[in-house]
């Protein structure tokens, strides 16, 4: 059997076939079940769901930070389940860039050194590395902060450095887990603009969010509810309207 999949999956950058993730323990928790969809190159996709719905689990599986317990997941046609940890790490480094809710900058490194981290794994010479890091910092408008330590920067700036770090090595896919969750509205808009710009330059953008307004900015949305993934935001909206109705009736009951 060839490691590379057939022509129909080869078109898709990421391909999930009945992917499930169950966490062991007493009792076992099925965080994700039978997720099947594909993501093409340069697509922008929002995954919306409420807290605990399984959307972060899906993102972790997509980004090879976690391994599915069932189903088949292919990245550029490569069957991920076949790969040893070492190769999965190489694939992750080559294909994915991550932006999390927290910036996770290394406190002892300057902004530029943080951005250089994934570039080090590419065996780049120092000059090339610095040039690429500077380019990435310029693209997020923080060239003036290159020598700053994270503690000397604001939350928004740290998150922008995290984006620069995620895009500096030009990954195929940018995976974002609530990247604006800790930011004010204005800064959040800046960050989203940066992410969409990266997408326009050819990077596939997948963002997990619980904010419908953000999800609506994406051409394609998927909802996760109780570990089940569905195309569109309908399932999320249905759940939300249920909550809104319940909240409304509770409020009405209390004023009565």
């Amino acid at each position: 059997m060839s490691a590379l999949a057939g022509p129909e999956t080869k078109r898709s950058l990421l391909s999930l076939d009945r992917i499930g993730r169950t966490y062991g323990g007493q009792p076992a928790v099925r965080a994700l079940s039978t997720a099947s969809f594909t993501v093409d190159a340069a697509e922008a996709l929002a995954i919306i769901g409420r807290s605990g719905s399984g959307k972060s689990t899906l993102l972790n599986v997509l980004g090879l930070l976690d391994t599915a317990t069932e189903g088949e997941y292919r990245v550029a046609g490569v069957q991920v389940a076949d790969l040893p940890d070492h190769d999965r790490t190489l694939l992750r480094a080559a294909f994915f860039g991550f932006v999390f809710q927290q910036s996770f900058l290394v406190a002892s490194r300057t902004a530029r050194e943080n951005v250089e981290m994934p570039l080090r794994l590419r065996g780049m010479q120092r000059r090339e590395r610095e040039q690429r890091a500077t380019e990435a910092l310029v693209s997020v408008g923080l060239e003036g902060r290159a020598g700053f330590l994270p503690r000397a920067m604001s939350g928004g700036e740290c998150q922008r450095v995290a984006i620069a770090r995620a895009i500096a090595h030009r990954p195929r896919v940018l995976l974002c887990d609530e990247p604006t969750g800790n930011l004010d509205e204005h800064t959040a808009r800046d960050v989203l603009r940066l992410l969409f710009r990266a997408n326009k330059q050819g990077m596939t953008l997948i963002m997990v969010t619980h904010d419908l307004a953000i999800a609506r900015a994406f051409p394609r949305t998927m909802s996760v509810r109780d570990g089940r993934v569905s195309e569109g935001a309908d399932s999320f909206l249905a759940a939300e309207s249920l909550v809104t109705d319940l909240a409304g009736s509770l409020a009405a009951a209390s004023t009565r």
Binding site: L4, V78, P84, L90, F95, L121
Partner: peptide, 18 residues
């Protein structure tokens, strides 16, 4: 453990941290 499942192009894209 099977070597060679990862295309060589991807394998060489990321080098070891010397």
């Amino acid at each position: 453990r099977r070597r060679g499942l990862l295309p060589e192009a991807i394998r060489t894209e990321t080098s070891k941290l010397g």
